[in-house]
Each structure stands twice: as structure tokens, then as C-alpha cells.
Design a protein around this nucleic acid. Structure first.
Length: 559
RNA sequence: GCCCGCGUAGCUCAGUUGGAUAGAGCGUCUGCCUCCGGAGCAGAAGGCCGUGAGUUCGAAUCUCGCCGCGGGUACCA
């Protein structure tokens, strides 16, 4: 027999009332309850008011709540509680399968939903499988997400690791929420840094001093060995050619590491493609046509100050060479031809870049095209102290090092837990030594428990055909109520570009499952109860697994 | 100086787009395995949500000022 929170057996704590399926529900089971309830609100609020039903924080405040009366009362100069009461009176409880509706506090309308509605959610999850939680909220809008875009001059660092986890997860979320998302990595293979890389490689190969403005990392030594595997180094070697070779090695290595990290890109867009396609020239012409360009001191300037930037920027130097800004503008114009909106994830050192790119896009008629997310700094913590990293000496912790040390699941989870715009302390000791206390294991453990139950001998096979009306214990309903919020959680995380919201959702889900698990047994119960709970457990497993998948974290069968 | 971001429990951080009694993990205490995996559950302690005003029926959330921390401020990328 299972136990409920207050020591009462689950069955005795069950609500005996069995609601009949109303015609409205039978007609369209998939239509959102909130939308139908909005129909009741319409006469009171009018068409131009955006009022929502939300899930209140406390169970004493019902299952759904709306502040409509308070919003409207302000406009109409009426008493909010009176208005709320009118709304309550207008709600036909039977029609919506509701148990109760009442006015609370300053004018909230709270409603209690009967168990039948929630039992149906379990059935939907089993029927939809890993498709559960998908929606068409994005209406197929094309979103181009550019992230990492590390220079091909070295290995991926720790901020890139963070950006990779966030960008990849964001793309997964957007797709789940009905957007057409494209993941893109911009390979900066055409700037002067390639030449500097070439010079560094040649110097290393010859055993000479690396130039002051070259790359001093240890990885360049390895790079030199690879580049010069079939040829002997010479001081006469062309730095551009050698740099190109070395950059290709780096890109390949970045692709491998990111693949291991479960980060997928639809396209690796090379800056060199842009140049061979004549994009920068066209971008310049477009800027000129927009009247946003002028000559000064022998250089060509973009008049950013007319479009929201703090100052004007050089796009072609007095030596006739384009600065990085011109091809970048060209790249974003290229994006605008392929997508409805774009999201750029940039490192903290690219703050100043945002305004000038937005200004350029505004000048070219793409004012609301680009969203920029600044991925803030990561500090690695070991034994309570920050791990010192020196770029100059090449002492950087690389993504591959981190993966070797803590694994993909922990790394991704730690990065995704926090808001993108906040600096992050990555505690390596917590990630390793105390891994049992780690939240990622908390969620994975919930999934493991589910698989553990269902593979027991004598466990019922979960089926959407099983009658689910035995599911009425508080722990069961609380679990289902959260399962019901899955698609909402996904939509919000996707729209806000904040994957950490899904992490919060999953932690809460795991918590509710663990509570259910402690209170209610699946095996050894009366058959109908056992079957219904098996279905619920399976449903929770489906959502946990799919949720973790959106984070790029595995859902293990055993731990 | 200017631009951007951040100040929430001892520490690391969430906070559902302005709601009702502000949460989690770690750390410190106390309970719970005859029973599907205790990597769990229940409970205690811990808060002037940096600060001062403003908007509002209602503010951690929005506006402005101030204080503190970080990053950026190139004819580099």
C-alpha cells in the first residue's frame, strides 16, 4: 500500500467524485482549457485586452487563476471584486469540468479543475510519446542562431563551451516550440589573423621565436607538426598558405570536439565564401545607397551615429583594406535573406560590437532582425579558488579538457543552469567529487527510478488504454499538473531565449516525481491502481527524457 | 568619462514577462528504509531582494538617481 504525504493511504485519500465527460471536452479534447475559459472572459474584457490564465503558486489558490477583473476594473472604474464575482457567475462549472470557481484576494478569479482533466493529460502523453510538448507557437518562423564562431586560430575555450551548450539547447527548444531554427558557426578564415597564425606555425616549426603579435599557445607546436608532416619548414613559406592549412586543422578539431559535446551545426559558414561571393562589396553598395557612408582621413566610414551607435566606424581603412565590420555586415545581410530573425551569441569581449551591428542593420532596413545574447564570463573554481588562465602563455582550459574531466552531461547542465547574461562560477569540485549531490543527477535519478520500476518483474506494462481514474492522490495530481505545463515551459524558454528556464522546470518535475515515488507505490497495489500509476510513471519518464534531450543531457536507464 | 551586464539565504544561483505567503542546491542541525534504487523524502535554521525615490490596487520584476562588482570602449577579429 502506498502512503500519502499525511500518512493516509493513497486510495483512501482519493476523491470519490467521478466527473462525466462533458460534451465540450468530447468534441475537442485537445483544445486548450485556458483558451476555452477565455471565451467566458471576452464579454467582460473586450477583444483588445491580453489577459491570461496562469497557474498560481499555492495550491490553496486553485489550479488556474486570472487577474482579468483587476485589469478591467481599473479601466472601467469598477470594483474589481464585484467584477470578479460576475465572471465567476458566468462560468458554467460542468461545461469545463471544473470543481469550483471563486473570487480571492484583491480580485483574482481562481478555478479548481477536476481530476478527469489531468488524467487525460497522462493519456495524451502516452499517445504522443516524445512528440509531447511540441507546439506550433513559433509558426514556422525561420530563426538563424549563430553561436561559438570561435576563431580558427586555436582550440575552443571555456566561454565557447558555455555558448555551445546554450546555443545548441536554444536551437532544440526553438524547434520543439515550432520555429524553423538553423544553427550556424561562422568561421573567420579570411582575416589577418590567419596570416599571423601562419607566421606562428612557421616559427614553431623552425624552432624560432613566435612573433609578438602571433599565437603563443602550446597548441601551435602540435599544429606545426601536423602542417609539416610531409614537407620541411622554410622561412620562405607563405604565411597565408600555412595559416590556411593550420586553420583547417583547427576547424576540424573544433568540429570533432563539438560533436563529442553533442552540439550540432547545420552550417559552418566560412568568411572566405562571403568574399568569393562578393557579399562585402554588395554590402558596401547597399550602405552607400542608404546614405550611411562617407569618406574622411582617407578612410571609408559607416555613419553609425545616425542609426543608434555611439560613434561612426571605419569600414575601409586608409590603406584600402576592409575592417572586420564590413564582412560582418555582409554576413548579417546574407542571414537576412535566409531567415526571419537572427540570434547571435557573443562572448563578453564583444559588447561594443552590438550597437554598431544593430546600427548597420537599421541603416539597411533590418531594424528588428537581430537579437544579441552576451554569454558572460566563466570562472573555473577548484578547491574554492579560481583557476588562473593565461591566454598569452597558452594556459587556457579547453573545452576538450573540461569534457575529459567532468563529462558532457555535467558540463552542459552546469552551463545551462544559469542565466546567459550572468557571470558563472563553475565549481569543478562540485562537478566531480560531490557529483552525487549535483542537480543533474537529481533529475537523471528520477528517470532512473522510473525505468527501475517499469523493469521490475510483475510491473504492469504502461498503456494509454488503462483506465486512469484511480489517479487522484495529491502527489499524483501535483505531478500531472506539472507534466501539463511542459509545452508552456518550452515555449517560454524558447521565446525568451533562456534555456535555464527549462532546467528549472525539470528540477521541479523531478522533485514532484520523487515526492510521488515516496508516497505512492506502483507495484503491489490493486491492479487498477497499479496500471494507472504505471501509465503515470511512464508519462513522467517520457517528459523527463524529452526535457533532458532538449538540454543535450542523457536520460540513463541505470546509474 | 561613455556603453553594456550584474547586485536575491553563509556560498553558488533560480524566480513562470507586474500578482497573493520570495525558492533550490551546497553548507549547518533533526527525523524517515521489513516495502518499486535513501543519488530520495519530511522538517529546522538562515532574507531590509545593494540603496533612495517614482509609477501601480500590487514591485525582486517597470522608470530615474546613487553605491558596489565585472566587461567593453581600435583604421584588431
Amino acid at each position: 500500500m502506498g502512503r500519502c504525504a499525511d500518512g493516509i493511504r493513497c486510495r483512501s485519500g482519493r476523491n470519490p467524485a467521478t466527473l462525466t465527460v462533458s460534451p465540450a471536452i468530447r468534441r475537442d479534447r485537445t483544445m486548450n482549457l485556458k483558451e476555452r475559459l477565455n471565451g467566458v472572459l471576452q464579454p467582460f474584457i473586450g477583444p483588445d485586452v491580453d489577459i491570461r490564465w496562469s497557474v498560481p503558486k499555492h495550491t490553496a489558490q486553485g489550479d488556474l487563476s486570472t487577474n482579468a477583473a483587476m485589469i478591467v476594473a481599473k479601466r472601467a472604474g469598477k470594483n474589481p471584486r464585484e467584477l470578479a464575482q460576475q465572471i465567476v457567475d458566468a462560468i458554467n462549472l460542468d461545461e469545463f469540468g471544473l470543481e469550483k470557481a471563486e473570487v480571492a484576494g484583491p480580485g483574482f478569479v481562481n478555478v479548481w479543475i477536476g481530476p478527469r482533466y489531468y488524467q487525460n493529460i497522462v493519456r495524451q502523453i502516452l499517445e504522443q510519446g516524445d512528440g509531447y510538448g511540441s507546439s506550433d507557437a513559433g509558426e514556422g518562423q525561420r530563426v538563424l542562431v549563430e553561436f561559438v564562431s570561435a576563431n580558427p586560430t586555436g582550440p575552443l575555450n571555456i566561454v565557447s563551451a558555455r555558448a555551445a551548450a546554450i546555443g545548441d539547447s536554444l536551437v532544440r527548444l526553438l524547434r520543439k516550440a515550432g520555429y524553423t531554427a538553423m544553427a550556424e558557426f561562422y568561421v573567420n578564415d579570411a582575416g589577418r589573423q590567419i596570416r599571423r597564425l601562419g607566421m606562428s606555425v612557421i616559427a614553431r616549426a623552425l624552432g624560432e621565436e613566435v612573433p609578438e603579435d602571433g599565437y603563443h599557445g602550446e597548441d601551435v607546436v602540435e599544429l606545426a607538426k601536423k602542417v609539416y608532416v610531409e614537407r620541411t619548414p622554410s622561412a620562405d613559406d607563405d604565411p597565408d598558405e600555412i595559416g590556411k592549412l593550420a586553420a583547417d586543422f583547427n576547424v576540424t578539431r573544433q568540429q570533432t570536439v563539438l560533436g563529442n559535446y553533442r552540439v550540432e551545426f547545420d552550417r559552418w559558414f566560412r568568411e572566405s565564401e562571403l568574399h568569393s561571393g562578393g557579399d562585402p562589396e554588395r554590402a558596401l553598395e547597399a550602405l552607400i545607397a542608404a546614405g550611411a557612408v562617407y569618406e574622411k582621413d582617407g578612410a571609408t566610414w559607416f555613419k553609425g551615429s545616425d542609426f543608434g551607435d555611439e560613434e561612426d566606424r571605419v569600414i575601409i581603412t586608409s590603406e584600402g583594406r576592409p575592417t572586420y565590420l564590413l564582412p560582418d555586415i555582409a554576413y548579417h545581410l546574407n542571414k537576412a535573406q535566409r531567415a526571419d530573425t537572427a540570434i547571435d551569441l557573443l562572448g563578453p569581449d564583444h559588447h561594443d560590437y552590438v550597437n554598431r551591428m544593430q546600427a548597420a542593420l537599421k541603416a539597411l532596413g533590418h531594424e528588428n532582425f537581430l537579437n544579441v545574447l552576451i554569454v558572460q564570463q566563466v570562472h573555473l573554481l577548484r578547491e574554492g579558488e579560481r583557476v588562473k588562465m593565461s591566454k598569452r602563455a597558452g594556459k587556457l582550459i579547453q573545452l576538450s579538457d573540461l569534457l575529459d574531466e567532468v563529462g558532457v552531461d555535467v558540463a552542459r547542465y552546469f552551463f545551462l543552469q544559469r542565466k546567459t547574461s550572468s557571470p558563472l562560477e563553475f565549481d569543478l569540485d562540485l562537478a566531480l567529487e560531490q557529483s552525487e549531490q549535483n542537480p543533474v543527477y537529481y533529475i537523471q535519478y528520477a528517470h532512473t527510478r522510473i525505468r527501475g520500476i517499469l523493469r521490475q518483474e510483475g510491473a504492469p506494462v504502461p498503456s494509454s488504454k488503462s483506465p486512469l481514474d484511480p489517479l487522484t492522490a495529491p502527489e499524483e495530481l501535483e505531478l500531472i499538473k506539472h507534466l501539463e505545463q511542459f509545452s508552456v515551459a518550452i515555449e517560454r524558454a524558447a521565446e525568451a531565449h533562456e534555456p535555464q528556464r527549462l532546467v528549472g522546470y525539470l528540477e521541479e518535475l523531478a522533485n514532484r516525481f520523487h515526492k510521488f515515488y515516496t508516497a505512492c507505490h506502483v507495484i503491489g497495489e490493486e491492479e487498477a491502481v497499479s496500471k494507472a500509476r504505471a501509465a503515470l510513471v511512464e508519462a513522467a519518464g517520457i517528459v523527463l527524457k524529452e526535457g533532458l534531450h532538449l538540454l543535450g543531457v542523457e536520460a540513463p536507464e541505470r546509474m
